[in-house]
Each structure stands twice: as C-alpha cells, then as structure tokens.
Amino acid sequence: MSSDPVPESPAGWQSVRDAVMARIRARTYAPGALIPNEADLAVEFGVARATVNRALRALADEGFLERRRKAGTRVASAPVRKAVLPIPLTRAEVEATGAVYSFELLLRETAVPPPDVAEALGTGPRALLHLVTLHRGGAQPAVLEDRWVDLVTAPGLAEIDLTAVNPNEWLVHNLPYTHGTMAFSAQAAGARAQALDCAPGDSIMVLTRATWLEDAPITHVRQCFPPGRNLTLQL
C-alpha cells in the first residue's frame, strides 16, 4: 500500500481524484501501469466504491487514465487534454439561430441493429429501438438523426409519443450518461441527400456517438448535417 497521504474518511470523489492525481504526478503510478482496482482503493480511502468510480472517471475524462472493461485502469502513457462536445438539445441549437424549430419522425421500428452498431454498443444480436428523425429550422433541414436505443436501459422511451417529443430531447432530459464515444467523418450525402436538401455527391458532416450509463448501453446515433454546418468543441 502506498505511503502517500490519503483523504480522511469520509471523502468526496474530488478528494479521491486529487489523491490519485498526486500519485500519477509523483510516478507512484507510472505511465502505462495498472492502478489498484476500485474495490481496493475504496477500502484504502474509506469511501464507497461508487465514489472511487466517479473519481477515476473524472481522471479518464481529463485524459490521465485509460479505462477498459475487464482489463482494469491504466495510467495514460501520454496524457492529453480531451476535446469535449456537450450533447445539446437540437431544438435549442435551432432556436438560437432565430429559426422556428420542428421535427418529423420518419421511422420507428424494433429491429436488430447492423453489426457495427451492435458491436459499438456491445449489445449483441438483440433487437433495439430504431428511430430516424429529421430536425428542421424553418423550412431548412438542420439534422438527420439515425438512432438506436437500448430499451433495457431506457424503458421509458417505449411509452413516449415520439411524434410529439423528439428522442434527442427525451434522452437529454431523462437519462444521464456516464461516458461515451464520438467520431466525425465527411461523407457523400448519397441516399440522405433528399432529406438534407442537397445533391447526392455533396459532402456532409456525420457525427457518430454512443453513450452508456456505467456498463449499460443507452444509444448509438448518427447525426448527419447539411453542407456548411459547423460544430464547436471545448478544450
């Protein structure tokens, strides 16, 4: 057990985070090394395991730790600051431009997702809720959203009239997430061109995002933006 000072019990997650960060800086936890598991740290610091989990997630979000399910938590070999894109309400984004927001639910079905979605969420070959929604600002398309939702994690969504409440809004208001992944790509509009009011060969920005509540998958969504759309990251 480390001889470094530990926070007095009971400690908040910030105190645990600061103590672990001090060990990273002092190389007590060396770059690339596994750190003790959550249960052992909880005993050492005299706190609940959930408190340790919250502290380690914060350090992972800041780029100092790398967490892998079933493989433990390691100190990042080359810590970097991460760029953050908050998950916004599409309605609020559209209304901030002065346009009138509206949306149309184009598809609602229960189906087995394609292999890439199932693999990304870790759900395996079981049925999820599949939703395709077109968000508009005035008469102009704002976002074409292709979303898969795990109703085991979000059972309340099954009872919602999604022609009256859009899924982006419901999930942001009702189901907090603990972590996620996000990727950007430029793609030809292809079959999405009609919905996005552009030519099939036009380049569009696609944001692919997956979120979890602890180990439980919530949603996988591809948001397709018309040509010329900009997004801002926070560092």
Rank of each mutant, 00 (worst) to 15 (best):
G124Q: 09
S2Y: 06
L233H: 08
D18R: 08
A118C: 09
P36R: 07
G156T: 01
L157Y: 00
G124P: 02
P115E: 15
V84D: 08
P79H: 09
A154Q: 05
V52M: 08
A154D: 09
G201K: 08
D116L: 15
N37H: 10
A195T: 02
G72F: 10
A76H: 11
M21D: 11
A158Y: 04
D146I: 12
T178P: 09
R136Y: 00
P113A: 15
I87R: 12
R209V: 03
A48R: 09
I24E: 02
L65I: 14
Q223A: 15
V94G: 01
T110C: 06
T163A: 11
P113K: 00
R209Y: 01
L56F: 12
E104G: 09
V152E: 14
R229D: 12
A193L: 12
A22N: 02
L175V: 09
A210V: 02
A83S: 09
L175A: 13
L85W: 00
G156S: 01
P5A: 03
V100N: 06
R57H: 13
S203A: 10
I218N: 02
L106N: 02
R192M: 09
R27V: 06
A33T: 09
E104S: 10
P141F: 00
V94K: 00
N53T: 11
P167S: 08
A120M: 11
T153G: 15
V172G: 06
D40K: 11
A76V: 07
D215W: 04
P155S: 01
R68V: 09
L89P: 00
V206T: 14
V52K: 00
W13R: 12
P10H: 06
A183I: 06
R209T: 05
T163Y: 10
P125N: 08
T123R: 03
R222Y: 04
P79L: 00
S203V: 12
V206A: 03
A99T: 14
R91N: 07
V16M: 07
Q194A: 12
R17W: 07
T211S: 13
W13H: 02
R108M: 11
K82L: 15
V52T: 02
R222L: 01
N168H: 06
R81K: 14
T90V: 15
Q14D: 13
T97K: 04
P114T: 02
T153H: 06
D215P: 10
I204W: 06
F64H: 15
A78H: 08
D18H: 08
T28V: 15
E66L: 06
